[in-house]
Amino acid sequence: MTDLISVTVNAGKYTIQQTEPGKWEALRYGEEWPAFRDSGPDNLHVALAYEIAGLREQIAYWRRGTDRINDCLKKAVKADPLDAPTPLVGTEAKQWHSFQAEAYRHALEMMGVPECFGPVKKEVSA
Rank of each mutant, 00 (worst) to 15 (best):
L27I: 06
R28F: 06
R28Q: 09
R28N: 05
Y29G: 07
Y29T: 06
G30K: 08
G30L: 05
E31F: 06
W33A: 15
W33M: 12
P34R: 03
P34Y: 00
F36W: 07
R37T: 06
D42Y: 03
N43Q: 06
N43C: 01
L44W: 13
L44N: 12
H45Q: 12
V46E: 01
A47S: 10
L48M: 10
L48I: 09
A49W: 00
E51R: 15
A53R: 06
A53M: 07
R56P: 08
E57A: 15
E57V: 14
E57T: 15
Q58I: 14
I59T: 13
A60F: 08
A60N: 12
A60H: 09
A60V: 11
W62F: 13
W62G: 06
R63W: 05
G65H: 10
D67G: 08
R68G: 08
N70A: 11
N70W: 00
N70E: 09
C72L: 14
K74Y: 03
K74M: 07
K78R: 13
A79Y: 01
D80P: 02
D80M: 13
L82F: 10
L82A: 15
D83M: 08
A84T: 12
P85G: 08
T86K: 15
L88I: 03
L88F: 07
T91C: 05
E92F: 10
